[in-house]
Simulated scan of single mutants.
Amino acid sequence: MSFPVGLSRVVEPAGVLPQAAWRLDPRPQLGADEVRIRVERLNLDAASFRQLAEKHGGDGAAVRAEVLEIVGTRGKMHNPVTGSGGMLIGTVDEVGPESPLPVKVGDRVATLVSLTLTPLAITDGLAGWDGRSEQVPAQGHAILFGRSVVAVLPDDMPGELALAVFDVCGAPALTDRVVRGHAANGPVSVAVLGGAGKSGSLALTAARLAGARTVGVVVSEAERDTLTAAGLADEVAIADARNPVAVSSAVAQALGGPATVTVVCVDVPGCEHGAILATANGGTVIFFSMATSFSAAALGAEGLAADVTMLVGNGYVPGHAEFAVDLVRRSPAVRALFEARVAGH
Rank of each mutant, 00 (worst) to 15 (best):
F294M: 07
K76G: 13
A239W: 08
D124A: 06
R329E: 12
T116N: 00
Q19D: 09
V35P: 05
G200N: 04
E40K: 12
W129F: 14
H141L: 07
V11I: 15
V136W: 09
V312D: 03
V16I: 15
R208A: 13
V5A: 05
W22C: 11
D267W: 00
L153F: 07
A229N: 13
V317D: 05
V328M: 04
T73A: 15
L163F: 05
F3S: 13
A324M: 08
M77I: 14
A121P: 02
G313C: 07
P172G: 10
V325P: 08
P18Q: 11
H56W: 11
A21S: 06
G197N: 07
G96D: 05
H273E: 11
I143Q: 00
V218G: 02
V215H: 03
A14R: 02
T118L: 09
T292G: 05
L311I: 15
V192Q: 06
V190E: 08
A14N: 00
L255K: 00
A203Y: 08
G159L: 01
V308L: 11
T226N: 04
F166T: 14
E12G: 12
R180I: 13
D167H: 09
P154A: 02
R242G: 11
A20T: 15
A206V: 14
A138T: 09
P4D: 14
H56I: 09
Q135F: 11
I276K: 01
S133N: 07
R27T: 15
N314Y: 09
I70C: 03
D107Y: 00
A65R: 12
K76H: 08
A278C: 12
A254V: 03
P172H: 04
H320M: 06
G140C: 11
R147H: 06
A207W: 10
L52C: 12
L7T: 13
G31F: 13
A14L: 11
A246M: 10
L126R: 00
A110Y: 01
N314H: 06
G216V: 15
L117G: 14
V67L: 14
V5T: 08
S8R: 02
A324Y: 07
S2E: 02
G96S: 02
